[in-house]
């Protein structure tokens, strides 16, 4: 399975792209685990047969039995009300309006290609230049 945003390969059962954080498409293999329930909150369980839980803070997979998320250090869901899917676990922080605006502007910096005067692209260079070759 490949991320629709960045094209990186997403591991089976992964809920987020490990490269860019985009939620992965929901697949049939992800099913709630009826064996794992939270006495305090309604059961939001990990995929059946999966040994992994998902961090509610960063969305990273956490091995069952681990007490903390290896990625961000958040207490593992087993010690808190559990979650079933990374999509439910990971909630992007709510940004104030000016921060949201900045976040909206940021992708322009990411996707904008370099201006030709600052360096050009390999394709443009290849249009004009060729290997000098043998004499």
């Amino acid at each position: 399975m490949y991320c629709k945003k960045c094209g990186a390969e997403i591991r089976r059962n992964a809920k987020f792209c490990a490269k860019c954080g985009t939620p992965a498409p929901v697949v049939d293999s992800v099913r709630p685990d009826p064996t794992h329930s939270d006495p305090v909150r309604p059961a939001v369980t990990p995929p059946a047969g999966s040994t992994h839980l998902f961090c509610r803070k960063c969305g990273a997979e956490i091995r069952r039995g681990a007490k903390f998320c290896a990625k961000c250090g958040e207490t593992a869901p087993s010690a808190k009300p559990s979650v079933a899917t990374a999509a439910e676990a990971y909630k992007p922080p709510v940004k104030p309006p000016e921060e949201v605006k900045k976040a909206e502007e940021a992708p322009k910096l990411i996707i904008t290609l370099p201006e030709t005067k600052s360096g050009g692209s390999n394709g443009q260079f290849d249009e004009w230049f060729s290997d000098a070759g043998d004499l």
């Binding site: 030709t116 005067k117 360096g119 050009g120 260079f125 004009w128």
Partner: peptide, 13 residues
């Protein structure tokens, strides 16, 4: 114009 495009494609690296 082609000459300009050619020059602009050069990257110092």
């Amino acid at each position: 114009a082609q000459f300009e495009a050619c020059i602009n494609s050069i990257e110092a690296k």
